[in-house]
Amino acid sequence: MRIILLGPPGAGKGTQAVRMVERLGVPQLSTGDMLRAAVAAGTPVGLKAKEIMDRGDLVPDEVVVGIIADRIEEPDARSGFILDGFPRTVAQAEAFDAMLQRKGLKLDAVIEFKVNEAELVERIVKRAKEAEARGEPVRKDDNPDVFKTRLGAYRTQTAPLSAYYAGKGQLKTVDGMKSIDEVTEDIKKILGR
């Protein structure tokens, strides 16, 4: 299964992706991890990305899509993958769709986690306090001000993907404010497993 998970930071995508990896037997692909691996491996696309990053520039969409194109050819991803954190923009989604089409592949599901943003901020604050109470380091993303900035960036850059995938008839939604187990069950219903 080829799946994209959409939703703002803190919506539970990462938690659900781990459960889906176990259940479906397909890898979760992180663009950041793939970028670092391609650079370390010295692949042609990785070398291009390294040159761009060494200049301090952002890696353009076509390079990121090229890295994903290479990654999904690896044996563990041939039967599918879960993308969380990509695409981030409609332009990336269009480039990704074009690449999949060239490979004769299609997405099986685009699942968006719908959340109440005010409650999401409370969830993040609670998560930070719980980590602190356990003596664990607090993720820098769990600072309410940093989190609100990330939420704003999500709203302007990534939220338009909902309309893009809905227009293609591919978007399914889950209530990300439900319990972890309830969200898992809702995703199972969407995927049929």
Rank of each mutant, 00 (worst) to 15 (best):
K189G: 07
D84Y: 09
E117N: 06
A98S: 13
R55Q: 14
E122H: 11
A109G: 03
P87F: 00
K189N: 08
P75S: 10
L105Y: 01
R193S: 13
Q28A: 11
A131S: 09
R55N: 10
E94L: 15
M99N: 02
A93V: 09
V63Y: 08
L47M: 07
A40W: 07
F86R: 04
V18N: 14
V115P: 11
A163N: 14
V18P: 00
G10P: 02
L24D: 05
K103M: 00
R155H: 12
G12Q: 02
Y165M: 07
A133W: 02
D141R: 14
K114L: 10
D97E: 04
A41T: 13
G169C: 05
D186L: 10
G192Y: 01
F81A: 01
P144V: 10
D70T: 12
E62K: 15
V26F: 12
T156C: 03
N116Y: 06
V59R: 03
Q157H: 09
V39K: 01
P27A: 08
D145V: 14
G56A: 05
K172Y: 06
P44M: 04
G42F: 10
K168Q: 12
L83Y: 10
R127I: 05
A69Y: 13
E130R: 08
L100I: 04
D175T: 11
V174N: 00
G10V: 13
S179H: 05
M53L: 11
Q92H: 04
V59E: 02
Q16D: 10
Q157A: 12
G25F: 14
A131P: 00
R102T: 01
I3S: 10
L191I: 02
G66Q: 04
V39A: 07
Q92G: 07
D141F: 14
G135S: 03
P27G: 09
Q28K: 15
S30K: 04
A69V: 04
A40S: 12
V90Q: 06
A128R: 08
R150F: 09
V45Y: 01
I82F: 15
A11T: 00
V183K: 03
L100E: 01
P60Y: 05
I82V: 15
